[in-house]
Amino acid sequence: MKISSGAVVEGGTSLNYKTGNWRDQRPEIDPESCKQCGICQEVCPDDAVRQVRDRYEIDYNFCKGCGICAYECTAEAIRMKNEEK
């Protein structure tokens, strides 16, 4: 593919760059405890929490495993687990 003039890039193209493999800790949402408050989505620096109907899911393609969601979850519904390589 030819380079663009002036290195101008289409917006939103970072979705082609998966940061999930940066992760050594994996957040897992326990659907039983989740109160669907949406805090996990609010606080994710990587926009890696998706709302799917009335539930929240971690997008492991992008989650870097920082653990903010687990720490901030008021329902303690998110656990960080060691990523298995």
Binding site: G6, A7, V8, V9, E10, G11
Partner: peptide
């Protein structure tokens, strides 16, 4: 047509 200018190459 949002584009990004001044990329890091």
């Amino acid at each position: 047509n949002p584009k990004t200018w001044g990329s890091y190459a």
